[in-house]
């Protein structure tokens, strides 16, 4: 199965693995949340991760930029192996953008300042240059006209688009999406998904935890189904949706698509 997907993804990017997760195990106390996760993501690949709540999907992608610490196994991001060294972690984080379920914009800063902060402090760019980059990305998510407002003055969909722009400003190699549309009103989901689809078409390497199956069908190279901390099934979307192999996946799909 994995060979089949690998040959399929070569078309969308080079063969260089962007993320290599090898025998990853994680416990919360004595609770085994991630069990022997193996996942290789090549450059330009778009992966959608789904599964019931508590299955460890968020935890897994949060391990990739060390928001969660793992106890066993290894993670290599863009050739840099993850260790507990703070400098190393920060080096990896500079290459990995993340979008959160609850946006996590900085409420005391304007939209523009939100986008400039890490460019100025992490990349040490001059303010004018940072603002130019920020406006470019805000333009791309179609929110440049709100640049001087505070996050609290925007709708949920607008805030999430700002959050995407903020992550993109760092010009990351990989984007992680942790249920980006779950906290949104239904009428705002589309504007965020449109931005994500556009990003996918531009060749960004993406890992998305989401329940938006339409999005998975449109852009994913691979869909991963997780349950109880394990990867149960991993397949290209048409295979995943049309003939899921495991019973657990079939049940999940019937519940999520059946309503």
């Amino acid at each position: 199965m994995s060979e089949a997907t690998a040959s399929q993804t070569t078309a969308s990017g080079s063969d260089r693995p962007m993320i290599e997760i090898d025998h990853l195990n994680k416990w919360y106390g004595s609770f085994h949340v991630l069990r022997d996760i193996n996942l290789t993501v090549t450059k330009g690949e778009r992966i959608v991760i789904c599964g019931p709540s508590g299955s460890g999907k968020s935890t897994m992608i949060r391990c990739i930029n060390h928001l969660e610490e793992h106890q066993q196994g290894s993670i290599v991001v863009n050739g840099v192996p993850m260790t507990n060294d703070v400098k190393r972690i920060e080096q990896i984080r500079r290459n990995v953008g993340m979008v959160f379920q609850h946006f996590n914009l900085f409420p005391h800063l304007t939209v523009l300042e939100n986008c400039c902060l890490s460019q100025i402090w992490v990349q040490k760019k001059p303010r004018a240059e940072a603002e130019k980059t920020a406006m470019e990305y805000l333009e791309r998510v179609q929110i440049a006209n709100q640049a001087l407002k505070y996050p609290g003055q925007l709708s949920g969909g607008q805030q999430q688009r700002v959050a995407i722009a903020r992550a993109l400003c760092m010009r990351p190699e990989v984007m992680l999406f942790d249920e980006p549309t779950s906290a949104l009103d239904p009428e705002m989901i589309k504007e965020v998904l449109d931005v994500m689809i556009e990003l996918a078409h531009e060749g960004m390497t993406m890992l998305c935890v989401t329940h938006e199956m339409g999005f998975a069908k449109t852009v994913a190279d691979r869909v991963i189904f997780m349950d109880q901390g394990q990867i149960i099934e991993e397949a290209p979307p048409h295979e995943f949706f049309n003939n899921p192999r495991s019973e657990r996946t079939q049940l999940f799909l019937s519940q999520i698509l059946g309503h």
Binding site: N65, E90, F100, N104, L105, S118, V122, A167
Partner: peptide, 10 residues
């Protein structure tokens, strides 16, 4: 977490 994800130090 948002700050961490952007690569800002402590």
């Amino acid at each position: 977490e948002a700050g961490q994800a952007l690569g800002l130090n402590y």
